[in-house]
Simulated assay, not measured.
Amino acid sequence: MADKEIAQDDQRVAVVTGGSSGIGEATARALAGDGWYVIVAARRVDRLEKIAAEIGGGAVRLDVTDDDSVAEFAARIDRVDLLVNNAGGAKGLDPVKEADLEDWQWMYETNVLGTLRVTLALRDKLVASEGLIVNMASVAALNPYAGGAGYNAAKFGLRAMTRVQRIEEATEGTNIRVTEIDPGRVKTDFSLVRFKGDRDKADAVYEGHLNLGPEDIAEAVRWVASLPAHVNIDRIHIMPRDQV
């Protein structure tokens, strides 16, 4: 077992999954700028370690689709004040009649069950700190589109889970806050993953449009996390000006 990740003094601890690039990396940098000790978590350890060194945080390998990986990850962390469930993604843009079951399974495992695994593993620590959970959903959780059924279904599922969790934590009186953030079109490697490395298809998604950057979404997370404990931001929908 590797050494535990321990913040200095009484420093607040944030965990950011999918933290090796894109929105996750930008979020880690924004939170660190606000004084958080940020633990970046993903599968690409080399990228994580570089980011952690630059922000004065920690880097821990994490595969949200693997039970053992999540358990090992949680065992290295003593305190969590903020959990940003950012790991997710899409694969394919096929109509339902041509659905690739492996792509659908990956999307559900990563976006829904991955979020659930990490949340369950860290929940006791979040209860102890009366912490905040931010789930990164998508406008795809609200607006279905042709070819998007697999990703729509996964993000609809994540949104439903987030809504129920918000109700249950409030009813139980744990003082855990739960926020859903729904980004629109953000220029990252999202489309490159969706099109399985086809750069031309990925670039075409963003050409001729205004696009958000990862830093725009990170600023929303930073703001939510900066608010006093009696404030719960329920949902934030963020889109570029030309996306409706």
Rank of each mutant, 00 (worst) to 15 (best):
G131E: 02
K125G: 09
L158N: 05
V193G: 03
N175Q: 12
A137C: 12
L192M: 08
T115F: 06
L142W: 02
V112S: 00
R123G: 01
R159D: 11
M107Y: 08
K155I: 05
I167Y: 15
N143R: 11
S129I: 07
G197L: 12
N152W: 03
K196A: 15
A141C: 00
R185N: 14
V193Q: 10
W104S: 09
T110P: 08
N211D: 13
G157D: 05
L122F: 14
V205H: 06
Y151P: 02
G148Y: 02
A170K: 07
T110A: 13
L120D: 05
A154G: 08
V127I: 15
S138N: 03
T179M: 07
K196V: 09
I133R: 00
L212Q: 07
I176Y: 02
G184D: 01
T174Q: 13
N175V: 08
S138A: 04
V205K: 06
R177Q: 06
L120W: 11
S138H: 03
I176D: 03
G213W: 03
V186P: 07
A160C: 02
L132E: 03
L210M: 13
P214H: 02
G208Q: 04
E168Y: 01
F195L: 08
G147A: 11
F195S: 06
D189I: 03
T119N: 13
W104T: 10
V118L: 10
G184K: 04
E168G: 05
V178L: 08
N152G: 09
V186S: 02
W104E: 10
E130Q: 14
D198S: 06
D189E: 13
E215T: 08
V205W: 06
D203H: 09
T188C: 04
T119A: 10
T162M: 04
T119E: 05
I133S: 01
A146Y: 12
L132Y: 02
N175F: 11
